[in-house]
Design a protein around this nucleic acid. Structure first.
Lengths: 333, 333
DNA sequence: ATGAAAGCGCTAACAA
DNA sequence: TTGTTAGCGCTTTCAT
């Protein structure tokens, strides 16, 4: 077994209280000599308080849960990194959970995290539309929701990105480059993020006196395949378009591939803009112009907000933080 | 406060021992009626044992630490996913730590994980060459090392990939396609993985009666910039080459970019093969032929091995598992 | 078939 | 300035 506070106390010839105080920086009333003596032993033994025991007493584990759809999806690693960096700086550890956007897995993980007594959780909910208010409420789990917007009273805080503006800027840019027939390869129709982007897309057209055409927007998954197939379909149906605005970069990658196969040049024949600015966007051919989401900061802010909320819970209402996205101009338009 | 086992016991009119037994599947000697009664209450209240208290008693937290260089590096998310999936299946949670290959961060995280009483850790050590045997030994932390090979007695298990064969296969393939002047853009010279690949590269040349030329291998970082600059240098110095074997896919991406700028066609003028098969490799132009490492399985096996080792520690020697890589032929050769 | 009680390693109120 | 002690929520041995 490893050492306990008792062992240290014995070695130093003091009580465990004394050791505890010293190790918790509450040693104002401990004399310098004893302090020094204890610290020497602590250092020599590389002693560290057992945080399980400590947590049992203090009701704080200094662990946060991070529940995301899939770390393998290139959108999430940067978020996770931002979260972990901030957590580490604030003295927290991060338990990571992949849900694959499955309702059941979400539930399972939330319960496990609650059981493990994490101090709070950062949650990127699935787009299934079902939430887990019951368990969050029952468990009284400090909860900040990230990226995907939901309204439930069990949510303590949110950090979101302005999807309307992101889409608006992207489409405006396309228009400024002379494009009028702009496809929108969107994702889940039911989802707020999609709807906001839809509004941004529409507004950009309107503001430039371009007629909006419902036929130009199509819904699918955040996968390259969706981009690929959509383009093929549009071309097969002889729809006219000179640009395509994609709900994420993977869709754009698929679109570009399809375009290439159809001998349509990007950006000469058709302009493409993506969304998210994943790493790959730099390396596509041509490099992808895309709406960059502040992924790292999203993760970082979420845990900072959560830490804040853990320290002083807001009695009513929720904290909301909305970040800006930014158009990264490369070569695909 | 949330409910405790005591509350449940009270509600059911039984002792906490009884509830504990039932919740731990040690209720052979409890009558069915009481069992049923207790379970009903448990279900109704969505009760769950406090695992902090439980851990204090049982000395098991059912948490593992995963220490990797950087989740943002496309090599690691799949490993993390494999690890997390396996952990979840085996009843473990995973705390994730990013070290940026920094010795200090590694140390800090190892200590924190030990203090948090994790049941074990999966560790992808930095290439700094310095290990942390002292703290691993002192803490008696079950440790499995992943991907990067080290020999220390504090290591309980290793899961590695056969780098010699990976390189051998890649270079042989290049040769089979008629290449003779093959550059090797390697990484850390001091590191075992690099050395093994170096041997594989050399052996493939030898076995095909091609003279090995030390000038053709160059060392750098796992970054696209290294690939980019190396190619530019080689061309500037008018070195002859028709193919390049890269220590990872990012290097290959950089190499391809440089080649493009020099109006050298891939694969017509020069063949390129990468290493790792990150997602991006599918989408480069042309799609990259590369040595695929079984990333997901590496993560998975590492936690399975660790779980095994936690259950029954091997008294002497270490568990070693070596996986195979596989050449993925796409269009860059 | 069920329960009482000790103890895991720590913190903190209180006493000395 | 330092120490005694109760108790956090649980598991487990031993009685009953």
């Amino acid at each position: 077994m490893s050492l306990t506070i008792k062992d240290i106390a014995n070695k130093a010839g003091v009580s465990i209280t004394t050791v505890s105080k010293i190790l918790n920086n509450k040693a104002d009333d401990i004399s310098d000599p004893t302090k020094k003596r204890v610290m020497q032993i602590v250092k020599k033994e590389n002693f560290t308080l057992n945080s399980v025991a400590r947590s049992l007493k203090t009701k704080k584990t200094h662990i946060m849960g991070l529940i995301i759809p899939d770390i393998t999806n290139p959108f999430f690693p940067e978020i996770a990194r931002g979260a972990e960096d901030a957590a580490s700086e604030l003295g927290y550890s991060l338990i990571i959970c992949n849900t694959d956007d499955s309702y059941e897995k979400e539930r399972k993980y939330i319960n496990i995290l609650a059981q493990k007594m994490v101090d709070g959780v950062i949650f990127i909910p699935s787009l299934t539309g079902k939430f887990h208010s019951d368990v969050f409420t029952k468990r009284k789990l400090p909860l900040v929701v990230l990226d995907r917007n939901f309204d439930y009273s069990c949510i303590w805080g949110k950090v979101m990105v302005d999807n309307f503006c992101g889409a608006y800027e992207a489409v405006s840019y396309l228009i400024s480059k002379g494009h009028k027939d702009i496809l929108f390869l969107s994702a889940f129709k039911e989802h707020k993020n999609s709807q906001e982007r839809y509004e941004g897309y529409k507004k950009a057209l309107e503001d430039n006196n371009i007629e909006f055409n419902e036929q130009n927007v199509v819904y699918g998954k955040y996968k390259s395949q969706f981009g690929y197939e959509s383009i093929k379909n549009f071309v097969k149906e002889k729809k006219r378009f000179t640009a395509v605005f994609c709900a994420n970069d993977m869709i754009a990658v698929g679109a570009i591939q399809a375009l290439k196969e159809l001998s349509l040049k990007v950006p000469d024949d058709v302009g493409v803009v993506g969304y998210d600015d994943i790493q790959m966007a730099r390396y596509t051919d041509p490099p992808l112009t895309t709406v960059s989401q502040p992924k790292y900061d999203m993760g970082r802010l979420a845990v900072e907000m959560l830490a804040e909320l853990i320290k002083k819970p807001k009695k009513k209402g929720q904290l909301v933080q909305t970040l800006e996205s930014k158009l990264i101009v490369r070569k695909s338009v």
